[in-house]
């Protein structure tokens, strides 16, 4: 199990603009982290960096003290929820959820069971065989969450995972995500929803590419 992802002195540029500037951040397992701040402040980029899905121009991203590798094996330990879901529209909900499991080479029976469980955990078991393109935005988002959670990855990264959900669903999803963190996984959520920030154990705020606030305050 991964215990820590550490970003040290990380910087990302696009042209002349610095999206991330000298960011130092330690993300610990079991401690849910919310990254907040306006869009364009680098939330998504920070999340992608932590997930090994983005290159840092400066600084390092360390996974348990070692530089993060970008091979598919590392990928398989992460579960990602992205803002545009990135679901394959012509696959069913279950097929989408099954993808990372199949990528890991699990046997068919296992894949079936785990994917259906994941869908149940987000309340979409009845929609398992519906094509994703026929689901509503909220349902699609929940499928994306289920896909990220399927197979209990060691690290869960979520970018605005509840933006399209109504209140009860939002609460439910949040609880599901937080449970992962409580079970000892790494959970990072990028959000600007104050409710989500509230619910997480820890939050950091990004402004113009720099970490400006931490709550609860950093203990040395």
């Amino acid at each position: 199990m991964i215990s820590e992802i550490r970003l040290s002195g990380v910087g990302v540029r696009v042209g002349a603009r610095a999206i991330l500037d000298h960011v130092d951040l330690a993300i610990r397992a079991g401690e849910s982290l919310a990254i907040t701040g306006p869009s364009g402040s680098g939330k998504t980029t920070l999340l992608l960096l932590a997930g090994g899905l983005q290159d840092a121009a400066e600084g390092q991203v360390l996974l348990d003290g070692r530089p993060m590798a970008r091979d598919p094996d590392t990928r398989k330990r992460f579960g990602v929820v992205l803002q545009n879901h990135g679901l394959v529209a012509v696959l069913t909900a279950q097929e989408n959820v099954a993808l990372p499991l199949q990528a890991r080479g699990l046997p068919a029976v296992e894949v079936e069971r785990i994917s259906l469980d994941a869908l149940a955990s987000v309340g979409l078991h009845p929609q398992a065989d519906a094509l994703v393109q026929n689901l509503s935005g909220g349902q699609q988002q929940r499928v994306a969450v289920a896909r990220a959670l399927a197979g209990s990855p060691e690290v869960i990264l979520a970018d605005e995972p509840t933006s399209e959900l109504v209140a009860e669903q939002r609460r439910a999803i949040l609880d599901t995500l937080l449970r992962q963190s409580r079970e000892g996984r790494v959970l990072v959520i990028a959000t600007h929803d104050p409710e989500v920030v509230e619910a997480c154990d820890r939050s950091v705020r990004l402004m113009d590419g720099r970490l400006v606030e931490q709550s609860p305050p950093l203990s040395s």
């Binding site: 701040g37 306006p38 869009s39 364009g40 402040s41 600007h192 402004m207 113009d208």
Partner: peptide, 9 residues
């Protein structure tokens, strides 16, 4: 203002 930082907001 949902996507904005304080200054922009």
């Amino acid at each position: 203002t949902s996507q904005l930082d304080t200054q922009n907001r």
